[in-house]
Write a protein that binds this DNA or RNA. Sequence first.
DNA 1: CACTTGACGTCGT
DNA 2: GACGACGCCAAGT
Length: 109
Amino acid sequence: MSKIDFFEKVYQVCRQIPYGKLTTYGAVAKAVGSPLAARMVGWALNKSSSLENPVPAHRVLNRNGMLTGKKAFSHPHLMEELLLQEGHKIVDDIVIDFKESFWQPNILI
DNA sequence: CACTTGACGTCGT
DNA sequence: GACGACGCCAAGT
């Protein structure tokens, strides 16, 4: 694929997440060619709030399916509400049907 | 310019 | 199986 910035890859991958599907930082990191750079995915998504074309960051969770980044949203419960709105079950900030709704992004190196 | 932090993941103990 | 430490890459201070 084209040589685009790490962040832009992250944005593209996240925008490919279908409605009602979920993925992890690690999966996205792997998709962009740096499986061990999951932290950067979170950083990119945090910065994505300033983008003109926002990404569905609420569909990206950690390996446990936990809403670790919910506090980075406008309102901490926004992420949870969005996920609930998409038909997910959340208990104690953890998506119950996470593994069932997991979506593996396409690898774009 | 060097150190610390940050929405994580994996390996080792 | 739980807890701790290290690694990853970039941005902020």
